[in-house]
Amino acid sequence: MNRAIKTILLVVGVILLAYGIYTMVVPEAKISIGDLDLVKTPDNTNAYIAIVLGIVAVALSLIKEKSKNV
């Protein structure tokens, strides 16, 4: 793999990891009306997908090519 592609994969992987972790950590919106609290149960499916894709992209960027000894 060429060096530019590896760099792009590394940057994209780090961004996806950061986005996935951010969406899991940031709490969902709450609505309070007096004593009544309406809280939406968070669905972290998209966050898990982003984290897995980020890990795969980082892993692919770190794979070394076999040296050709001819």
Rank of each mutant, 00 (worst) to 15 (best):
V58Q: 01
K30F: 07
Y48F: 11
G54K: 05
K64Q: 12
Y19F: 12
I51N: 00
M1Y: 10
A29R: 08
D35V: 11
D43A: 07
L17T: 10
I21M: 13
L16I: 02
K64D: 08
E65Q: 13
P42Y: 05
V25D: 04
G20Y: 00
V70Y: 11
V58W: 03
Y22K: 13
G34S: 07
N44C: 00
K66G: 13
I51G: 00
S61V: 08
R3L: 12
K66P: 09
L36E: 02
K68D: 13
P27E: 04
P27K: 05
V70F: 11
V11N: 04
Y48I: 11
Y48T: 07
L9P: 06
V56M: 11
V70P: 08
N46R: 06
I51S: 00
D35K: 14
A18S: 13
M24V: 10
E65K: 14
D35A: 11
S32K: 10
I31F: 15
Y19T: 10
E65A: 12
I21K: 01
P42A: 11
A47K: 07
I31L: 15
T23M: 06
A59Q: 06
G13Q: 01
Y19N: 10
A59R: 09
K6A: 13
P27T: 01
L62M: 12
R3W: 08
V26M: 02
N46L: 11
I55V: 12
A18I: 15
V39P: 02
